[in-house]
């Protein structure tokens, strides 16, 4: 089911897995900022973060022997796609949920 990591790869695993999550957040934040401020220059940086995430994931996959087993390979693919799309989804949710804000002119005071 799993092939345990080898000693020489410990550091790579810790480092890249931290990078995956942090770059994921950075990507999401830059993406949101770029849209929020209407600043197009931030968008390439957002995708640059994702590129970093992609590279980190691949290094992680290699170091943790994930590509040697179909199930874990699918997880890697899933993470790559999921972390690519999640910031889009989060952004749309932010906008979508706040769309109602302007409608709510009179607060519900029915108590």
């Amino acid at each position: 089911m799993i092939e345990p990591a080898s000693l020489g790869n410990f550091f790579t695993i810790f480092f890249t897995s931290a990078m995956v999550i942090m770059l994921g957040a950075l990507y999401a934040l830059l993406f949101a900022f770029s849209r929020l401020k209407g600043d197009k220059r931030l968008m390439p940086l957002a995708y640059l973060s994702y590129a970093g995430l992609l590279i980190s994931t691949l290094f992680l996959a290699d170091a943790a022997n994930l590509l040697k087993h179909p199930f874990w390979t699918v997880i890697v693919a899933f993470m790559l796609v999921g972390y690519l799309l999640a910031p889009h989804a989060i952004w749309h949710l932010c906008v979508g949920t706040h769309a109602a804000e302007h409608v709510e002119v009179e607060p519900i005071k029915n108590y």
């Binding site: 999550i21 957040a25 999401a28 934040l29 949101a32 900022f33 997880i75 999640a86 989060i90």
Partner: peptide, 23 residues
């Protein structure tokens, strides 16, 4: 498999929260 898969998902709500708080 179950632990690996769902652990990979666990950070997503946390990222969503950070983005939404900033928003």
């Amino acid at each position: 498999s179950i632990g690996g898969f769902f652990s990979a998902l666990e950070p997503i709500p946390l990222v969503a929260m950070v983005v939404h708080a900033v928003f």
